[in-house]
C-alpha cells in the first residue's frame, strides 16, 4: 500500500489547487512506531506531510461530523461506509465531499504486535506482505496476515463502496472468511460464562471514552453517559456503571456499526469492546440482511418503519 501515497498526494494537490475543496483530510506520520496522526491540508504545500501505510486504522469519517467546508477525504472501505452513514444521518452532505477512495489491504494491530515483543519496539516498517519489527536492537519479520487488526482479517469490503477518485486499482475482496467466529464463541457460552467474560473483559476499563470518541457513530451533542437530568449512569468506576456504558453504547450503534475497528484500536488498555457492537452487526446481517453504509439511500433497519413489516408486535 506504500505506493498509494503518490496518487493520494497528486489528487489532493489537484483538488486544493483547483479549489474543488477547502481542505483534504488524511494521515501524517506519527512520532512513534505504528502510529499515524489524522491531519488536514489546506494548501497544496500541506499535502507534502500525507502518508499512507498499514497504520491508518483510525476512521477518518469521524472528522467530518458537522463540518461546513467542502472537504476532500482519504477513505478506506470502512471509512466510506461510515461516510455513507454520516450522509444518511445528515452529519455531512454528499455535495460537500470529494471522496478519495483507498482500496485497502488491511491495517496492522499495534496492540498485538506490542505483546509479541518483550523489549520496547523501536521501528516497524513494511514491505508488501512483510512487516519488519525492530525491538531490542533485533529485526524480526512478521507476516502481515498474522498481525492484521481483527476486523481487517475478516473484512469483506476493502474497496470503497463509493468514491469520486481512486488512489489505486481495486483490490480483490477476501472470500471465505469466517466473519463471526469470535461472536459465535461468546454466543456458545452459558449465561454465567458470558457474565464472567464481560466482567474480565471490562475490568481494566478506565472509562476514558477513547472507544466512543474514536467512533464516527458517537456524535450525539450530549452522550447519555454525560447526561445529568436524568442521570442514566453513574460516572465513577463502579463495574455496573462501566458495563452500562459499554452495553448501552453498543445498542446505540446497532445497524450502524461498520466494524471498522477504530474503537478497539483507540483503547489505551487494549480492551476488545468491539465484540459488543459486532454481535449486533451480526444480528443485523442475519435478521435483516443488512450491512451498514453500503448505500447512500437506504436507512438502517432500526430506524425504518415499513407498513408491510411481518412482525405483529410493531403493528
Amino acid at each position: 500500500m506504500l505506493d498509494y501515497i503518490d496518487k493520494i498526494k497528486e489528487i489532493s494537490e489537484r483538488l486544493l489547487k483547483d479549489c474543488s475543496v477547502e481542505m483534504v483530510i488524511g494521515f501524517r506520520k506519527g512520532t512513534l512506531p505504528m502510529m499515524n496522526e489524522p491531519c488536514f491540508a489546506r494548501t497544496p504545500e500541506d499535502v507534502g506531510q500525507f502518508v499512507w501505510d498499514s497504520n491508518c486504522g483510525i476512521n477518518l469519517a469521524n472528522y467530518l461530523t458537522d463540518r461546513k467546508e467542502r472537504i476532500g477525504i482519504v477513505a478506506k472501505g470502512c471509512d466510506t461506509r461510515n461516510i455513507a452513514t454520516h450522509i444518511i444521518e445528515n452529519k455531512i452532505s454528499r455535495e460537500q465531499l470529494v471522496v478519495i477512495g483507498v482500496p485497502c489491504k488491511g491495517m496492522i494491530d499495534k496492540h498485538k504486535i506490542a505483546t509479541l515483543f518483550a523489549d520496547e519496539i523501536q521501528t516497524v516498517t513494511e514491505n508488501g506482505e512483510k512487516i519488519l519489527v525492530t525491538a531490542g536492537g533485533k529485526e524480526t519479520p512478521l507476516n502481515k496476515s498474522d498481525v492484521l487488526q481483527k476486523n481487517c482479517a475478516v473484512c469483506t469490503h476493502r474497496n470503497p463502496v463509493f468514491y469520486d477518485e481512486l488512489a489505486a486499482e481495486k483490490v480483490e475482496e477476501q472470500q471465505d472468511v469466517d466473519r463471526y467466529a469470535d461472536v459465535q464463541e461468546i454466543e456458545a457460552m452459558d449465561t454465567q460464562e458470558k457474565w464472567d467474560y464481560f466482567e474480565s473483559l471490562l475490568s481494566p476499563c478506565i472509562r476514558c471514552y477513547a472507544c466512543k470518541n474514536a467512533c464516527p457513530l458517537c456524535y450525539c451533542p450530549t452522550c447519555f453517559v454525560d447526561e445529568a437530568k436524568p442521570q442514566w449512569v453513574g460516572k465513577g468506576q463502579d463495574p455496573t456503571d462501566v458495563r452500562t456504558f459499554h452495553f448501552l453504547r453498543a445498542f446505540h450503534c446497532a445497524g450502524r456499526c461498520t466494524d471498522c475497528g477504530a474503537c478497539e484500536r483507540a483503547c489505551p488498555v487494549g480492551i476488545n469492546m468491539r465484540v459488543f457492537t459486532k454481535k449486533l452487526e451480526k444480528d443485523c446481517f442475519e435478521q435483516f440482511g443488512w450491512e451498514a453504509g453500503m448505500s447512500l439511500d437506504e436507512r438502517p433497519p432500526l430506524d425504518t418503519y415499513r407498513p408491510n413489516d411481518p412482525n405483529d408486535f410493531i403493528k
Binding site: 488536514f40 478506565i206 472509562r207 476514558c208 453513574g234 465513577g236 483507540a266
Partner: peptide
Amino acid sequence: EDISFACLNCGTCTYTCPTCWCFDLQDE
C-alpha cells in the same frame, strides 16, 4: 488548529498522566 485536529477529546492523556489532578464531585 493543527495540533488539536486529530484529538478525540478522550481521557487517555489526563487519566494516565501522573501529574493531572483534576476531579469532579458526584452524588450517588
